[in-house]
Nucleic acid binder design. Structure first.
Length: 208
DNA sequence: CATAGGATCGCCT
DNA sequence: GGCGATCCTATGT
């Protein structure tokens, strides 16, 4: 299988996350668990990968900050109702392609926004995509920057993260102590009323 | 059809 | 800390 060949070029201890991972019901726990996992893209044979350092959970129809709040459906958000392990990519502020992982079962529109990475593979390709001369501490910090560096585009929305060779997430066994993962309110969701205060953003803390 | 606003970023002061 | 870029999306008439 083509996808197996391409994934076979990755380190042997990188295990692709299965559907059962994404189909778990607790999106907040999943957002925390994605910290330390590795997001990989392979477009036109170019492999780029980074370790996830920041995430945000969006808890479906009950979450005012979520695009699927109150059961909303639209052409853009329909993919959130797919089964866990599907990519949800949308354009923000007319410029930024924001990459989300759909979680839970079909028809339960949970998603996790990937907000930050630590670059691991294909850094020269990431620099080329972003037009930056060299790595900086904020190079893949912020959801728009993550997608730009990994080449993720709104055209990829709806893709499976399980059965395609282009976008997937792997574990290499890395975990962080709970104390090293900080929970905070989500960014840019002031419109969400009380839900803006939920501690649904997770950030790994380095060096302290 | 018209319109307002957005799960952001980078540059400016 | 402030602001402009930039255009799609959702909503309302």
């Amino acid at each position: 299988m083509d996808s197996e060949k391409k994934r076979g070029r990755l380190p042997e201890d990188w295990e692709v996350l299965p559907a059962s991972f994404y189909e778990q019901e607790d999106v907040v726990k999943l957002a925390r668990d994605l910290i330390g996992k590795i997001l990989v893209t392979c477009f036109d044979g170019i492999i780029t990968a980074g370790r996830i350092s920041e995430t945000e959970a969006y808890e479906g129809v009950t979450d005012r900050a979520c695009h699927a709040w109150n059961g909303r459906r639209s052409v853009r958000t329909e993919v959130m109702y797919a089964s866990g392990g599907t990519a949800y990519v949308y354009l923000c502020y007319g410029i930024h392609h924001l990459f989300n992982v759909v979680t839970n079962k079909k028809d339960t529109p949970h998603a996790i926004l990937i907000r930050g990475l630590e670059p691991l593979l294909g850094i020269e390709h990431m620099l080329a995509r972003t037009g930056k001369p060299k790595l900086t501490p904020t190079f893949t910090s912020g959801p728009g920057n993550v997608s730009k560096a990994l080449g993720i585009h709104t055209r990829h929305t709806g893709q499976s993260l399980i059965n395609t060779p282009e976008i997937f997430i792997v574990s290499d066994g890395t975990t962080y102590p709970q104390a090293q993962i900080k929970a905070t309110p989500r960014i840019g969701v002031d419109y969400a009323g009380e839900d803006a205060a939920l501690l649904y953003r997770f950030v790994v803390q380095f060096g302290n």
